[in-house]
Design a protein around this nucleic acid. Structure first.
Lengths: 142, 142
DNA sequence: CTACGACTTCAAGTCAACTTGAGGTCAAGC
DNA sequence: GCTTGACCTCAAGTTGACTTGAAGTCGTAG
């Protein structure tokens, strides 16, 4: 009785049905059954989708998210792997913080050339304390 | 004399020449001149590239980054727009923090089903304080 | 009992951000 | 003066994450 069909999940999550089907195809979510042809989802799926979108905005691929939160929305990685993911996110938070500070600085700094402003260079350098081979990102407006 | 050619920029920035040419094509960076056919870059470009990679890891598209830091690597947006970008980043930092906390929690919480753990639900809800229509991300390993 | 609308599948298309490959240019060292 | 290697251009290919379109399937309201 409390099953949701794809349209309801879409309405409540703000994610298009086509995207939800795609998520099912790659194993991020699963329908509990079918009503005729229609997928029936448990309300739980909304929570799982929240995790998915958190992961996405963190810059993880769908595959990586599936790795963090198994097919059921429950993490199936060993503790250490999860902490390592958390560390990655910490690093990303530090980078974002540096970028935000940089933006606020350039918004307010009256110097003619930021490239020569020591504050600016220091801000940028903060992010330089080892990023390495990392996250590439992109937007898509539904 | 202190011009860098693309191979040097690539070596010092860790960004492939093909990507640098792509960045030039979309107006993110610019060569000051050519030596024969070869692009000559100012050392400044390395700082600009740092800004670009910060922006990328923040989930901005190359177009958006070009919007924040004009063709010269210097921001050309009005103060208010920059602060608005900074606010967007703040929101993203909050989401990332929630995700990291969630990961650390699930790594350590002994509850059998996280979906029923109140701490878990609270952590997830923290991120729910309105994201709206937002950042989609992806990885690409060079 | 039929029409409707919300769903279904599947193949193909799109978009960003690059990468790859073929074929060409050129300055510097021998 | 010729070879070499690092660069060049331009078109086409790749990947991830979807979206779109055509053609079909249902169950419920009238």
């Amino acid at each position: 009785m409390k099953y949701l069909d794809i349209g309801e999940v879409s309405a409540k999550s703000g994610i298009k049905p086509s995207a939800l089907r795609h998520y099912e195809a790659v194993g991020l979510i699963a329908a509990v059954s079918r009503h005729g042809l229609r997928r029936q989802f448990l309300p739980e799926v909304l929570l799982q989708l929240k995790l998915v979108s958190m992961g996405k905005s963190a810059g993880f691929s769908l595959d990586e998210i599936a790795g963090m939160f198994g097919r059921n929305g429950l993490p199936d990685l060993p503790r250490a792997a999860l902490h390592q993911k958390a560390d990655e996110i910490d690093r990303q938070i530090r980078e974002l913080t540096a970028l935000r500070n940089t933006l606020r600085h350039v918004a307010d700094c009256p110097a003619p050339s930021h490239m020569e402003c020591p504050t600016f260079r220091r801000l940028v350098d903060v992010a330089g304390k080892r990023s390495g081979k990392h996250a590439n990102s992109k937007r898509r407006l539904p």
